[in-house]
Design a binder for these strands. Structure first.
Length: 162
DNA sequence: GCCAACGTTGGC
DNA sequence: GCCAACGTTGGC
């Protein structure tokens, strides 16, 4: 049985990887995630075709910057085995990988970023994981209604993105 | 740059 | 298994 699509939000610091980088590359392995809950979402729940919001965190104006799509389910994150990588993990082995990464493909860069401030003002988005106090999860689920609300807020809802 | 919230580590 | 100390995240 085919399960319906899920929706996600991926945080990234634009200084290290931005929506422009994703646009240029077309697709990328979402590696370097070192949080177990985020790992579990990628490994266990994100599937081909799921829709993704790309969020720029930690900048002057945190905002949703674009849209992406899960293009392949998770495989072991190669950086955990790489001694030269900042994400190297000595407890991981090829037999027992610890960290996983899904692949996402570029869908769209928003012509105007949707600022966190705007999200915070939306009554409909009150329950969003992103807006919860102290929320730091870098891979987080988004409800379908929340996703639709956000698409509408981009004022481009007439265009079929997906 | 500050600092609150969070997750992880490690001594006991 | 508890929990204090520490490091990190991320908005402001």
């Amino acid at each position: 049985m085919k399960r319906s699509l899920r929706h996600w939000l991926l945080k990234t610091e634009p200084g290290s990887y931005s929506i422009d980088d994703l646009k240029r590359q077309g697709k990328t392995r979402w590696d370097g995630v070192r949080n177990y809950q985020a790992r579990n979402y990628m490994r266990d729940s994100m599937r081909l075709g799921d829709r993704v919001l790309i969020y720029h965190s930690n900048g002057k104006a945190p905002a949703i910057a674009g849209l992406a799509t899960v293009s392949a389910s998770a495989i072991p994150d190669a950086s955990q085995f790489d001694h030269m990588s900042q994400y190297f993990d000595k407890k991981a082995s090829k037999d027992r990988p610890i960290w996983w990464a899904t692949e996402v493909k570029f869908t769209k860069k928003l012509s105007t970023e949707l600022p966190l401030k705007d999200l915070q003002m939306s009554k409909e988005l009150e329950g969003m994981v992103l807006l919860k106090r102290g929320s730091r999860l870098s891979v987080q689920p988004v409800k379908e209604e929340e996703f639709d609300t956000i698409l509408k807020m981009t004022s481009q809802e007439k265009k079929p993105y997906y």
